[in-house]
């Protein structure tokens, strides 16, 4: 397991470090069982697993939306269990989160949605584009430019297609000035073309800005071609942890429990 404590050098400390992380929800459901691994800075990591395997729960822990029931979770050198108040907000700000359903405010303009990514470092509530300083709007437009959406900056967000909305969501995450980018099934609701654009954008941006990226995926092929490293989860436990280059589809498929008795399950994954 990870021996993160020995790293004194700040730069060499992993971006995320989990030790024996277990999460039980109130209903008695155990979503994570003794999960432990380190993610070095700048790594692109794919979490593989069926729905219900604990991928989303894990990502939400790293973004400090959940707290582990037991075990230790350190994000950017801070113990999540002890972060409270504005320390917690600061930690959340440093981890951008891209959702499967984009979670943009459909009634607002694209630019205002991107600007809202800065809320974590602003004091007081904001409503309306003009409540954000001009410099913030310029920065937001730059991020929109990066994801190729600058010309739709003043569109109402709900009028965009899924792929366009996901690119706006990435721009919003960039507005947070994150050190880590988390993506929960970022392309599960998109058509293949848009999915391709979004995955490529995530990878390119990560490399440009030396971001650590952790993305949950359920398509094995997509994960192998995209990530540096693949971690497989099944029933809340790590069942696979290997560099993507050393894996082939068959090995990775074992995450899905491609044992003889559940063979049929594998079909709808590849399909």
């Amino acid at each position: 397991m990870a021996d993160h404590a020995v790293h004194d050098d700040v730069d060499r400390e992993p971006a995320v470090s989990l030790t024996q992380v277990t999460k039980e929800f109130d209903g008695g459901v155990t979503a994570l069982r003794g999960v432990g691994f380190d993610v070095p800075k700048g790594q692109i990591l794919a979490l593989l697993g069926r729905s219900g395997s604990g991928k989303s729960t894990l990502l939400r822990h790293i973004c400090c939306l959940h707290r582990p029931t037991s075990g230790s979770l350190r994000v950017l050198g801070t113990d999540v269990a002890r972060a409270r108040g504005h320390h917690l907000r600061r930690l959340r700000r440093r981890t951008g989160f891209v959702f499967q359903q984009f979670n943009l405010v459909g009634q607002l303009s694209v630019l205002e949605n991107v600007c809202s990514g800065a809320l974590g470092r602003l004091v007081g509530p904001r409503l309306g584009l003009f409540s954000y300083a001009r410099s913030l709007r310029v920065e937001a437009l730059d991020h929109l430019d990066r994801v190729g959406m600058a010309d739709l900056a003043f569109q109402r967000t709900s009028t965009l297609s899924g792929g366009q909305q996901q690119r706006v969501a990435i721009a919003r995450a960039l507005m947070q000035h994150p050190a880590i980018l988390l993506a929960d099934e970022p392309v599960a609701s998109l058509d293949p073309d848009s999915a391709d654009t979004v995955m490529r954008l995530l990878r390119e941006i990560a490399r440009e800005r030396s971001l650590t990226v952790i993305g949950s995926l359920h398509q094995v092929d997509l994960a192998l071609g995209w990530a540096d490293r693949v971690i497989g989860l099944r029933d809340g436990e790590v069942t696979l942890d290997a560099p993507a280059a050393t894996l082939d589809t068959t090995t990775a498929m074992e995450v899905y429990g491609m044992a003889p008795r559940t063979e049929s399950m594998a079909l709808d994954v590849t399909g």
Partner: peptide
């Protein structure tokens, strides 16, 4: 969804209310 997204951004309760709830409920 938008409320959760703003929480993940590190927004306060008031910020979430004005940016995510009010435009939807207006």
């Amino acid at each position: 969804g938008p409320r959760e997204a703003l929480t993940s951004i590190g927004a306060t309760r008031g910020q979430r209310l004005l940016t995510a709830v009010v435009p939807q409920a207006l």
